[in-house]
């Protein structure tokens, strides 16, 4: 019986790899959970593409500023020390390599570090990219946080992406609900696995060929 990690445990594992003092941009969806579980021992400055550094949590209900929103268009707050700037500056931070780390969701990741996270079907829905390509190309370290397989059980870690790419060769590390994997010149290397999972089971849920670290860790839960 394979027991995937709960989303909050996965978020804690990602947060553990973000160093104190980082400037970070969290993608929409699952990655936003990371900010909720970073401990008080770390000071991390969150960036938003619409011109915010030092972004804080959602305001209390009934308060807040309708124009102070995050990339997902949800209301947020500004922490002491935070700053506002215009869009070109916000993207200069992203494209110019000033963001230390980004955590992004993914539809697919290839063993070469290609990322597909912006579109699956070009024919029926108008395409929309936002800042996904800028962030994937520009952040110093690109972490992907995702379920290991799709809702239908199809592998997301592949030899080559079949969906249109967001960026080629950019992903450094992938955190799934089953494993932590580094992208290396030799492909995916598994560093940690969910408790009780075997290497054979993990390979069975992964289309790309996996290598395993000599000292394989266990993903912490609870």
């Amino acid at each position: 019986m394979i027991a995937p990690l709960a989303a909050v445990d996965l978020a804690r594992r990602v947060a553990a790899d973000i160093p104190d003092g980082s400037y970070a941009n969290l993608g929409i969806g699952l990655p936003t959970l990371v900010a909720d579980v970073v401990g008080p021992d770390k000071e991390i400055v969150y960036h938003s593409e619409n011109g915010i550094l030092g972004m804080g949590p959602a305001p209390a209900p009934g308060t807040g500023d309708p124009e102070l929103i995050n990339a997902g268009k949800q209301p947020v707050t500004l922490l002491p020390g935070g700053a506002f700037f215009h869009h070109t500056d916000a993207f200069m931070m992203m494209r110019g390599g000033h963001i230390d780390v980004t955590v992004l969701g993914a539809f697919q990741v290839s063993e070469r570090g290609d990322l597909a996270n912006w579109i699956t079907d070009v024919a029926t829905m108008p395409p929309a990219v936002g800042g996904a390509m800028d962030l994937a190309v520009g952040a110093q370290r690109v972490l992907v946080m995702t379920t290991h397989v799709t809702r239908e059980g199809r592998p997301k870690l592949l030899p080559r992406c079949s969906f249109p790419l967001t960026a080629a060769g950019v992903v450094d590390r992938v955190y799934t609900d089953l494993a932590v994997l580094d992208v290396t010149p030799e492909g995916f290397v598994v560093l940690e696995m969910a408790p009780g999972l075997t290497a054979v089971e993990l390979q069975g849920l992964t289309a790309a060929r996996l290598s395993f670290a000599d000292e394989l860790g266990v993903l912490p839960t609870g």
């Binding site: 593409e49 070109t88 494209r95 996904a132």
Partner: peptide, 13 residues
């Protein structure tokens, strides 16, 4: 529709 990555949109302007 001309779809442009957001940073490229801003930088082109």
């Amino acid at each position: 529709l001309e779809l442009v990555p957001q940073g490229t949109l801003s930088e082109r302007m």
